[in-house]
């Protein structure tokens, strides 16, 4: 059964915006469509009058590196992110999370932009973008602006964007530098919907001696209706020795402040608590190791 009537492939942002205005709220932005079209098929509603595909806009299809900042267009699929050598080294958690979304067919078409616009509480790409403290450029209310990734989410499945009027344009974040590194891991189950039981991305910066945490960012999801950082845990680690004792403190804090809930056919709250502990114990040492050595080889890409 058809899901849409017209399919537009504008080649500039202005053209895309003009089309949205022309359809006055009845057309939708589409990127890879790997989530959107499946969701539309489940919805059993009348076909959309039009879809506006932003992946033909050349400026939204690039990964650009300017000094220490990377810009990733909203039309960039997961595969080019996973294969980008700079991101592999300097945004390892993003590569690790984009590398476990779907299978190759989905990663070749589905985009990071779509992942964020979809606003899943545990979108793998989102979890890493939060740890990377990424910013998002959006077109809304007639103008472009940058917002922090955390501001993007207003509720489960709800983002700042109205995809019949607004456009997500690109992401930017600072690449890991000296003494900095990231890691992402998630826990899945082999049954039911392929959403993580829990995903965890960490960003760490060690001090010059590489013995102490200078700063840490941690995103674990889903633990709240929208993606969130665990600031109490981040605070606990600040300035502490990068060792087992501090990680134990982080775990204790996490267990105290985070109260995941039971979700049907996914996981119990107790299990999620245990997995939170495990993920912290698996990601933090990995990130420390990467920060110390300056080398990062993504783990689990393609399989987990």
């Amino acid at each position: 059964m058809k899901l849409w009537e017209r399919y537009h492939t504008p080649t500039t942002v202005d053209e895309a915006v003009a089309l949205l205005q022309q359809y006055a709220g009845t057309a939708r932005i589409i990127a890879g469509g790997t989530d959107l079209l499946v969701e539309m098929r489940e919805g059993h509603h009348d076909p959309f009058p039009a879809l506006i595909d932003i992946t033909s806009i050349p400026s939204l299809r690039t990964i650009q590196i300017e000094k220490d900042t990377v810009y990733i267009g909203a039309g960039v699929a997961h595969t080019p992110i996973v294969k980008n050598p700079v991101l592999v080294e300097r945004a390892t958690c993003l590569v690790e999370s984009c590398g476990v979304i779907g299978g190759p067919q989905v990663r070749n078409v589905g985009t990071l932009g779509g992942n964020v616009a979809h606003a899943l509480p545990a979108g793998d790409g989102t979890t890493s973008l939060v740890a990377l403290d990424a910013e998002v450029e959006i077109f809304k209310n007639g103008k472009r602006r940058w917002v922090n990734i955390l501001e993007m989410f207003t509720g489960p499945g709800q983002s700042l964007l109205d995809s019949t009027r607004d456009v997500l344009l690109q992401f930017r974040f600072r690449l890991s530098g000296k003494n900095e590194a990231t890691a992402f891991k998630r826990i899945m189950r082999p049954q039911g919907v392929a959403l993580p039981i829990l995903g965890c991305a960490v960003w760490v910066r060690l001090d010059e001696s590489r013995e102490y945490f200078d700063m840490v960012r941690v995103c674990i999801a889903p633990i709240a209706p929208t993606p969130t950082r665990i600031s109490e845990l981040e605070e606990v680690l600040k300035g502490q020795p990068a060792n087992e004792v501090s990680i134990q403190k982080a775990v204790d804090t996490g267990l105290k402040v985070v109260h995941p809930r039971t979700s049907k056919y996914r996981a119990t709250a107790e299990y999620r608590q245990e997995m939170m502990e495990l993920l912290l114990r698996r990601t933090l040492p990995l990130a420390i190791e990467r920060a110390r050595t300056g080398k990062a080889i993504p783990e689990g890409v393609g399989l987990k």
Binding site: Y7, T9, I30, G33, T34, L37, D53, V106, V109
Partner: peptide
């Protein structure tokens, strides 16, 4: 996956 790949893509 051609089943959800819009032809005009």
């Amino acid at each position: 996956d051609s089943c959800i790949f819009p032809a005009f893509k």
